[in-house]
Design a protein around this nucleic acid. Structure first.
Lengths: 125, 125
DNA sequence: TTCCATGTGCAACTATTGGTTGCAGAATCC
DNA sequence: GGATTCTGCAACCAATAGTTGCACATGGAA
């Protein structure tokens, strides 16, 4: 159930280069593709492509300012994205604890009764 | 500063398909590539490749069980990864607030004195 | 033991995508 | 008006996520 429409958001944030761009924008404020390209280990065109992806995901907005185009972070959207990240992380955590509890219970049961449960490997033999 | 060695962890988690695999492993416990392939919209070989990536990143460990190979989540490593995610999110949040404060201060200054600050676009004219 | 079924691993191929270079067009500054 | 500088488009390259196909191994059954 984790794979829904918000997938675009995740893969926008998942890329290291895009995170670097987001880093710069959050640290400095609105900036142009050329300005960003001077602070990043790849070309302006690469930056432009990443900005396009981020814009499609709604994480940045563009504004024309004279002959340059400034990109700024959409704070609300970015916050929503990070909230979703935290949510997924929390879910994994809950599940891991649940599985651990089940495994321990199964071990206890087997130790006491000698019964093989084997509920882990195969559901449909 | 975000792009360090932990980058491998991030891109391991960043991929939607890999998140799906992690989802299944956290929800069910140790499982084989074939078992996972039956619950996922892509082939067993694709699953195997993702598991290899996750293993290189230290997020899963393999254990041979008869003729099948079971993969299980390394809970500690996954928790470390999600903690790092949360850390990055928190940093973005702090920076966005800081930039907002600066912008408001600059606006105040300009409104009172009529001075153009223009510290946003260009650092090296 | 032999045979069959099932799970794994390897290799070749395709499509997508992150990255590059090069060039053309538009807006600003002198 | 002309030089500069910033953007946008296109062609190309490399890595990787996905596929199919086949060979190998192991466990269970006749």
């Amino acid at each position: 159930m984790t794979t829904q429409a918000g997938d675009e958001l995740w893969s926008a944030i998942g890329d290291p280069s895009r995170r670097e761009v987001i880093d710069l924008l959050t640290g400095h404020g609105p900036a142009s593709a050329s300005w960003l390209a001077g602070r990043v280990p790849f070309s302006r065109q690469a930056v432009a492509k990443h900005l396009a992806v981020l814009e499609r995901a709604g994480l940045v907005a563009r504004r024309k300012e004279g002959r340059e185009v400034l990109y700024r972070i959409d704070a609300a959207r970015l916050e929503a994205a990070t909230r979703e990240m935290a949510e997924v992380a929390a879910q994994w955590d809950r599940r891991l604890r649940a599985v651990k509890r089940l495994a321990e219970a199964a071990y206890e049961h087997q130790r006491k009764t000698g019964t093989e449960t084997g509920a882990s490997e195969r559901d449909t033999p």
